[in-house]
Every structure is written in C-alpha cells, then in structure tokens.
Design a binder for these strands. Structure first.
Lengths: 185, 185
DNA sequence: CTCCTGATGTCAGAAACTGACATCACATTA
DNA sequence: TAATGTGATGTCAGTTTCTGACATCAGGAG
C-alpha cells in the first residue's frame, strides 16, 4: 500500500513489491496468483465469516434476516482499519482492473451465500436473489461507511436495508404500469 | 470465437487472432484495449440502446417501468444470435477473467442507467438502487434465455421481474425479525 | 500532382506470469 | 549423529500481453 501511494498502482511493479518485502518476484506469485490479488487477501476471511454466521444461525430465522445478521458480523474485520479501507477504495476507484476484481470477489461471495441458504432449504431462485440483494446492500453500506466517520458499519447496513425496503415496497404498488411516479424524488 | 472453440481461450494468443483476421498483433490492440475486449464489442451498443430508450420514455412513467421497458428493447440485439450467446456464456463460465470483465461492463451499464434516471429527476439513491436491481434482473433473465429455447428474452425478463417482486413483497412483511420463514421453499 | 490524414506495419522493450530445476532450512527417523 | 525427506525460496529461461516510437501506404482534398 505504501508503494501504491507513492508511485501509483500501475507504476509499481511486482518486482518492486517483492523487493520491499524482501522476496523474489517468483515468490510473490506463489502467494498471489495475480498482481491484483495483493489487494484482496482479506476476501477469504470475509467470506468465511459470512458463511459461518449463516450456517450457525437459528433455523427458525427467515433467510433474509439470517443473511443480514451475517453481514453485521463482519464489522470487526474493518472496525480499526477505516483509513486503510479508504486508501483501498481510492485505489479501486482509479483502476478499472481492480474494480473488476472486486466485483468478481463480491459475486463469488454472493454464490457462497446462496449455497449456504440452499443448505438451509431455501429454494435456489430465492437464495440467489437474496444473496445478490445482500451483496448490493453491503456494497452500498461499505461505501458510505468509508466516507462517513460518524457512524459504524452496522449503522450503514441498517440504513441501506431500510432504503431497499422502501424502494421495493413502492415498486410493488407500481405493478399495473399506471399510478404515476410515487418513487420519484 | 472459432479459435476459442478450437484451442480454448487461454491457448489462443492475440497473435493467432490477428493472423486469422489478416492483421498484425499491434493493430488488434488498436481496436481492442485488451485481449478480453474482443468478446465485449457489443457492450457499447447494448448500453446505448438502453440509455436511449430511457431518455425517450414518457415522463409520466414510473422510473422502474421505464428501465424495465428499456431492457426489453434490447431483445432484437440477441434475437438471432442465441447460438453465439451460448458459446460466449460457456467461455465466460470457464474463465474468471472474462467473468470479471462481464461484471465490470454490467456495473458500468448500471451507472449509466442510474445517470439516465437522475436526468429524469429521480433521486440518486433511488436511481442507483433501481439500476442495480434492473441489471440483476437482466443477468438472471439472460442466463435463462440462453439455456431455454422455448421462450424469448422479454418473457424471461418478465419472469425475473415477477420473481423479484414476490421476494421483495415477502421481505417487507419480515420487518421486525419475527414471523417465521414465509419466504422458504 | 501534391499534401494531408488515418489506418496499418515494424520494431524494441517493459511488465506480468509460468515451468523446471537448484538450494537451503528444518524436522523426522534410522 | 547422520541420512533422508519436505516445504519454502531462489534462479533462470521463456511466453504472452501490452505500449511507445517511428515508418509506410492508400485515398481524399485542394
């Protein structure tokens, strides 16, 4: 991250990173399949946290609540690392290849969530939909958390969920393609 | 696509593609910024179709309806190319780097949709949420369309929308974290 | 006919990545 | 203790992607 800050992502070569870490380029590629991967080492842990939380949730809880609660358990992962998260987000915003990788990781988490729900006897169709909605909420909340020092991640998760509920509720009323713009402004 | 079918994506070098097209590798990179991009030449047209459809929709129509109608206008783009679409999907499913690029393109379309909605005086928060939901629907519908020869793309779009409505409707009832699993199975 | 422009080719080179093999530290076990 | 095996790292050569600089060439405008 230091190197990326100094020289920018693309002007930092893998050889540079390896040298700074006291290693060889070859060794770098044994730890990270990609140059990009060096910025996604936490993805595995995040995924595990969520999947485990879903697996150990009470069976009676509705699926959406289960997933949402699982998202909240990830807060400690970032709690003390908001500065780092902000730097990372800045990098992502500047480099399409990093954004693509991020999308890939999130998509992967979505399928894991979906699988976990199906293990709880949620239908495949509902599971993927819930999983995708959950990831959308998480993305939105995380983005706002990075920028807003006043509230914590769970707060923003709650807010994003409320927003989604409001939108989907009004989408329901718009069913027969009439009834002018209630979702406006 | 021929080359990819024969040798596989990764064993097809850009030099191969260029040679087959009667060009130089250098020229290839003047048309496509990436090796990956050769499989995404249609993204620009798809985006334009959707954005234009949104821009020219009646002002009275609710935003979600506008976007959904815009998605339907893209059907002719693929109408006669289901075989090609299937081959492409197979490639995507086998190569993470291609899937990532696809996610990037779709995310980009989502922000374009959101911008188009905001130009129609939809709030930023609602616009991004609607855009993301729309892309989710599109992805799901497209996937099923590729596999199911019996129905056309608009049919699958309609089905995906119905499914989302059903899910969000029941999500609404689950607000106070009680009321056992109604969304199950 | 000349000049301009846009598309293409040629070339050299940086950087990302991979496979094969060597080496070294360390632990197990005879 | 010495032999042996294992896992991590280094070394090296090579392929592929991608870029910048410059040359060439064809066709249109004047």
């Amino acid at each position: 991250m230091e190197l990326f800050q100094q020289r920018g992502y693309e002007h930092t070569t893998v050889a540079d990173i390896a040298a700074k870490a006291g290693l060889t380029e070859r060794t770098f590629f044994r730890y990270f399949s990609d140059k990009r991967e060096v910025l996604f080492s936490g993805a595995k842990a995040l995924e595990k946290l969520i999947v485990d939380a879903i697996a150990s949730a009470p069976v009676a809880l509705p699926p959406f609540e289960v997933v949402f609660a699982a998202l909240k358990t990830t807060a400690p992962l970032f709690e003390s690392r908001r500065a780092h998260a902000r730097q990372r987000q800045a990098l992502l915003s500047q480099h399409a290849e990093l954004r693509e990788r991020e999308l890939g990781k999130l998509a992967n988490i979505a399928v894991r969530i979906s699988e976990s729900l199906q293990a709880r006897h949620v239908s495949a169709a509902n599971a993927t939909l819930i999983a995708e909605a959950a990831v959308a909420i998480y993305r939105s909340a995380f983005e706002r958390w990075v920028a807003d020092t006043k509230h914590d991640l769970p707060h923003h998760l709650q807010a994003a969920l409320a927003q989604l509920r409001k939108l989907t509720a009004s989408a329901k009323t718009a069913t027969p393609a009439t009834k002018a713009a209630r979702t406006r402004h």
